[in-house]
Amino acid sequence: MTAAIAAPGRGALHVFAYHLIGYRRTWWGTAFSSFLLPLIYLAGIGLGVGGYVDRGHQLGVDYLSFLAPGVLAATGLSIAIDESMYRVYSQFAWDRTYEGMLNTPLRIVDIVLGQLAFVVFRALVAVTVFLLVMAAFGTVHSGWAVGVLPTAMLLALACAAPTFAFTATQHTDSSFAVLTRFVVIPVQLFSGVFFPIAQLPAGVRVLAWLSPLWHGVEVCRSLTLGTPRWWPVLGHLGYLALWAAVGLVLAHRAFRRRLVV
């Protein structure tokens, strides 16, 4: 028994593999939210409204090139949070998978890390596909663009880990709809995805600075436009890493409370 957990991280790998096996069966069901939805946004707003925006020449780049990296980051966020609500909740409350896992040599930390790794992987797949679509639309202006992949992974982790912690404290599923509508959607609409946050009133702008999505959008946009400036990029990434680290600690603690104590 001890052999199985001798190598740290091995357990997390098994959990990751478990979720991957599930994904093999259900990936088609997630295709809509991962691939189609961002494309609909890109086409609807980028091509439709973009035509009018481009007449004004206020952005310095064409609107589609401005919007696409924003939607890419927003996709990373929404997948991360989606995967961390009902899916995690059902494993606590309905399927009780976690209890089953704990009857094996797996530890709490393996369960949390393994599933978070899977969430990050889901985000990576979606973002990679989206990046290829962006290239096809001619909105990738620099080789730096590959940097959006690790950026989106970090963003996904920064969003998923605290959501894991939140979900672990919930005993009904009613707060997830509230979280989606009062947190996720506003964050997506006011974090510089669709327009620069300079447009926002000063008070709201502060809120945008706090949102991890804005930092993700800033990095992704500078990378696909080929205009990264290093200190700001490092600052943004550092902020995201902070969210991820605090989120991990909270998630681990919340899982322990829910499953062990």
């Binding site: 409204v49 925006v53 009613s174």
Partner: peptide
């Protein structure tokens, strides 16, 4: 469940503020 009820009202309002007014400033007139 008034919170859920209220959220149905907020969502389009948020879209209006974000895309109508925020993005609208870049769009100008149509």
């Amino acid at each position: 469940g008034w919170v859920v009820l209220a959220s149905g009202f907020f969502e389009p309002l948020l879209y209006l503020l974000s895309l109508g007014i925020g993005l609208g400033a870049l769009v100008g007139r149509v």
